[in-house]
Design a protein around this nucleic acid. Structure first.
Lengths: 343, 343
DNA sequence: CTGAAAGCGCTTACAG
DNA sequence: CTGAAAGCGCTTACAG
């Protein structure tokens, strides 16, 4: 007696597949795959026929199947310190826009300025076989670096121009920007120039290094004017910092805050306490955030090209993914000092 | 002559697969799959053995294969109007955090307050077979609604409490919040109360409706005090709006701005032009954004539970995905009036 | 330039 | 409670 044949019902998901398109176009499935992916080795008329068939059937490729078969996905992982911050909101929105236009999805992760949290996110995202990575800055744990080196996933580091071996970077020189603000304060006659830094992430410290370097060159450096506070940058903290500074160092005649929220807070605090800006103290900020032009007095700041950085980072990534060798590993998009009434 | 057998080299990706874990644990692959997914129908000791084998081999399931085989993914799509806005930054960060902890990825999309762009995003995201959707508000195109109804993907609408048929909502009553601010202004003796609205998205219009309703009830409504500007909400626009208002309606004694950035701009504008706040004009804002407590005078506003909304929306989604029927389709998290010096 | 076969790494749908 | 078979919808690696 023979065993009755086992009948297993097919799954029938109802999706339109490459096979359907192939039948419609009168070619094989693999030709559909090639034609739709833009593979060169397909006759032009076949490409056209396949395209029409795909359109007629409203075919949408299944990303899960693509990813499984090719062991590559169309996901780009983007890790930023915070989303609740205009600087990174602008950045991330631009990256997302550019990638989506070319068929790539963006997976965001928030590191809260913690390299260990970044490593944890990398570990949970790598099994998704991302096509690419965009990381903020170049300050990563040893574990993250090993992870990156071990994979062949292209990586773009944004916001800084610090080159990371094997990776790409798109940003501007935070150090130079720190120098630029400091030069401006020196040239406008200030002599007791303080630095107000919060959060103290690597980019803030690079700006601080620029500040220090320029003041040392000018023989004006005084370590007691450097105020570094590890708490998150905020408007309220800026007010508090100016207050503390004026009490501890009454002769201060300028403050360079590492971010506009601090500087805006300082301006509001000065209004409350009667400190005259810029007569008594000049105040400069960083990032030219919304509202800085509306302050009383309006705030001198540095315009940083966040959206442009996001777009260029995405384009660079897309080039690499398309097999195009970018002309340079390191794109410097610069910055611009915006002088207003506060200095 | 027989055809020589065709030899096709296997791909050998080097990944640790269910088969490897199965061999190590001495069970079949399907048992590994079930044990790791927490399927009930597996003997406890087997679950333990499989877990140990998986740990020993550092097994990580392949999401692409899972998704292809089960035709479900662990992606939750989250669509918000903007990322470059604290309100949505807070929301999105909370959603992302909660989902990631439970093994779900978040795919963001930015609609720029445009329902058509939302529909476009939905169309490009649905082929990814998202496990769930989180949409801002309940103002969707007919196309989006059909798309949602046609799929069985659970959907949570955030920021409002407007129920959408079949969907869930987590937020607060924008209308009630509008009433609350207006009541406060009336009760503190104001009579010529203006409304300053920008962007004019559905939630702003719901606040405006609350304002209108309360003033009508009090017999104080005057359409010429309603200033609606479709441009994006910003600090600069707030200054401009107050200026325009004071020129057109000099008798105005209070302004309810639909968002704190407008209100902050108005306060700064008042400082510049010498309008006395709150003596001549009371000013109230919305969302209690950063810095509102630092303004001069400090700004009366409404604290909205963005992060909490994000967390609850994620939890609700996770419950639904786990097959747990939530007790209610509509979660109202309320709001709180924060009275400060400006009113 | 085109295609038949096999495989990617899981889970579904049965059967027992 | 456990498993053998088939299938999910693509692409790789060959062969011609």
């Amino acid at each position: 007696m023979t065993n009755p044949p086992r009948i297993v019902r097919p799954r029938a998901t109802g999706r339109v597949t490459v096979a359907d398109v192939a039948r419609e176009a009168g070619v094989s499935p693999i030709t559909v795959s090639r034609a739709l992916r833009g593979d060169r080795n397909v006759a032009i008329d076949l490409v056209e026929r396949v395209r029409q068939a795909a359109t007629a059937l409203a075919y949408v490729p299944d990303p899960a199947a693509q990813s499984l078969a090719s062991s590559r996905s169309r996901n780009v992982v983007v890790l930023v310190p915070l989303l609740s911050n205009r600087v990174f909101g602008d950045l991330v929105e631009a990256i997302q826009d550019s990638l989506l236009q070319r068929g790539y999805q963006t997976l965001f992760g928030v590191t809260h300025y913690d390299p260990l949290e970044e490593e944890r996110l990398l570990r949970s995202y790598m099994p998704l076989r991302p096509a690419g990575l965009v990381l903020t800055g170049s300050d990563h744990t040893e574990g993250s670096r090993i992870l990156l080196r071990g994979s062949d996933v292209p990586c773009v580091h944004v916001m800084e121009t610090t080159p990371v071996n094997g990776g790409y970077s798109v940003g501007f020189s935070q150090f130079d920007a720190g120098c630029c603000v400091t030069d401006h304060l020196i040239m406008t006659g200030r002599r007791r120039i303080a630095f107000g830094g919060a959060q103290l992430d690597p980019r803030v410290m690079q700006r601080a290094a620029g500040y220090r370097s320029r003041l040392q060159d000018a023989g004006l450096y005084d370590a007691s004017l450097e105020m570094l506070d590890p708490r998150p940058s905020s408007i309220a903290l800026g007010a508090e910092m100016l207050d503390r500074l004026m009490r501890m160092e009454p002769a201060v005649d300028a403050v360079f805050f590492c971010n506009d929220d601090l500087a805006q807070g300082a301006l509001l605090g000065a209004l409350r306490s009667g400190v005259k800006v810029p007569q008594q103290v000049a105040i400069a900020g960083f990032n030219d955030l919304e509202g800085s032009d509306q302050m009383l007095p309006s705030l001198t700041s540095v315009r940083t090209p966040r959206a442009q950085i996001g777009r260029r980072a995405a384009e660079l990534m897309l080039d690499v993914l398309a097999g195009v060798q970018p002309p340079t590993h390191c794109v410097d998009l610069g910055f611009e000092l915006i002088r207003r009434q506060s200095t």
